[in-house]
């Protein structure tokens, strides 16, 4: 894993954080889901910058598929789509504006790289299974990546899908559980203990691993060193920090969904320059 690649991904992450706070700020009073987007920045950067296969055509048949099941984290998704040129910087400014293509949850729009409408929790993995099955049927070796929230694992439909994915031996299906320990109104433990996600997914027949979701080296190593022995889907439990990247938002669940004021936006810009 050479240094240049890691730098490339770090810069990608920095640009995404910048796009995220720009959008959140432009949303103003309509507010934005900042916390859950910031916790998946390194995951999405590693995927878009290093792991996933794609080209300049968002609907290229041989692209790897990406599904943001925890749709409310779409700030990170739109930010990444902008970095790879599917969405313009100006378009980002329309976030949550009247009749915008970029709403608070992704709305299907394949011309700009949004493959599905997500946001109703617990539905993305089922879609991922359908896509993974079709790739297998067509003997394509593309992969499907789904990001699921830890709170989202409260939904029964997630476990219906988890059971099916291993039943169908979908080793082309990778999911990240964004384990940032918080959900809408509190910590997982307060709201609904989903303790030991790893053993849950393992017992459902998934090859699972615990990883530091902000450590780019670890994320890259996982994909480099992974040998696909058994025909199992892969569950990566990414231990992350909600609101990662800015002092005011880290581990502060008020930032699940709230307003980025001018003062905090300026502070964020400053911190962005200082940290990286």
């Amino acid at each position: 894993m050479d240094k240049s690649n890691i730098n490339k991904i770090q810069n990608f992450s920095k640009s995404i954080r910048r796009n995220i706070i720009d959008m959140a700020f432009s949303a103003g009073a309509s507010s934005a889901h900042l916390g859950g987007a910031l916790s998946i920045v390194e995951i999405i950067s590693t995927l878009f910058c290093h792991v996933m296969k794609y080209n300049d055509d968002p609907q290229w048949q041989d692209r790897d598929r990406f599904i943001l099941s925890k749709g409310h984290a779409c700030l990170a998704y739109y930010a990444a789509l902008c970095e790879i040129g599917y969405i313009s910087k100006d378009e980002l400014q329309t976030f949550e504006k009247d009749s915008s293509k970029l709403l608070g949850h992704p709305v299907i729009n394949r011309e700009i790289g949004i493959d599905f409408s997500n946001g109703s929790l617990g539905m993305g993995l089922s879609l991922g299974i359908g896509v993974a099955l079709s790739l297998k049927k067509r003997k394509k070796n593309n992969r499907v990546f789904v990001i699921i929230g830890d709170g989202e694992c409260n939904e029964g439909s997630v476990w219906e899908a988890a059971m099916a994915a291993s039943h169908f031996k979908l080793n082309n299906l990778f999911i990240f559980i964004d384990n940032n320990k918080f959900q809408q109104t509190g910590t997982n433990d307060q709201i609904m203990k989903t303790s030991d996600l790893r053993s849950k997914w393992e017992s459902f027949g998934w090859e699972t691993i615990d990883i530091d979701g902000h450590n780019i080296k670890e994320l890259c190593n996982y994909f480099e060193s992974m040998e696909d022995s058994e025909l199992k889907p892969k569950a990566i439990i990414a231990n992350t920090v909600k609101g990662k990247g800015f002092s005011f938002s880290e581990n502060n669940n008020d930032w699940h969904h709230s307003i980025l004021t001018k003062k905090l936006y300026d502070q964020a810009l400053e911190e962005l320059e200082v940290n990286k």
């Binding site: 879609l127 359908g130 896509v131 439909s157 899908a161 059971m163």
Partner: peptide, 18 residues
């Protein structure tokens, strides 16, 4: 898909999208 109708529709939609 087994006795799991929510997953049934999601998987079917994934297949349809392809």
């Amino acid at each position: 898909l087994g006795i799991a109708e929510q997953n049934l529709i999601g998987v079917a939609a994934g297949l349809a999208s392809e």
